[in-house]
């Protein structure tokens, strides 16, 4: 079987073709084409097993020069966990000042990924 997908790793957005066989619940990838770099291969493999995405959002800041601090996940999370993670982000609030790079929610929902501030709010 062949599955086409757009690689989201970089702006090139390569259109990948993944040839695979289904063996019960397992997927055996035979060939990946269309990628301009190695990261495309990795992306395709992950996408076939369990798609993951990095997400960005904002967390409420109390007493800061801005009402929000922008945040992102420190790494990709399973697609199915995007909305549960958003709910955690929505629940969270922090007190100013916040430094860019600070972990605001460590190991969110035990996913092994942190929610980190991407800007400084004084």
């Amino acid at each position: 079987m062949i599955k086409e997908m757009t690689c989201v790793v970089c702006p090139n957005g390569c259109l990948l073709q993944v040839e695979y066989e289904k063996q019960g619940d397992q997927v055996a990838i035979q060939r990946i084409t269309g990628n301009l770099c190695k990261r495309g291969l990795e992306y395709a493999r992950q996408e076939m097993v369990s798609p993951r995405r990095t997400i960005a959002s904002s967390i409420l800041v109390e007493g800061g020069s801005m009402p929000l601090v922008s945040v992102r996940t420190s790494g990709p999370i399973p697609k199915a966990m995007i909305f549960p993670v958003m709910a955690e982000i929505r629940k969270c609030s922090v007190k100013a000042p916040v430094q860019a790079g600070t972990v605001l929610i460590p190991n969110v929902l035990d996913l092994g990924v942190d929610i980190i501030a991407t800007r400084t709010v004084e």
Binding site: I59, L60, L68, R90, K91
Partner: peptide
């Protein structure tokens, strides 16, 4: 507000 201190 998109985010508010009152918890959802």
């Amino acid at each position: 507000l998109m985010r508010s201190a009152e918890k959802e």
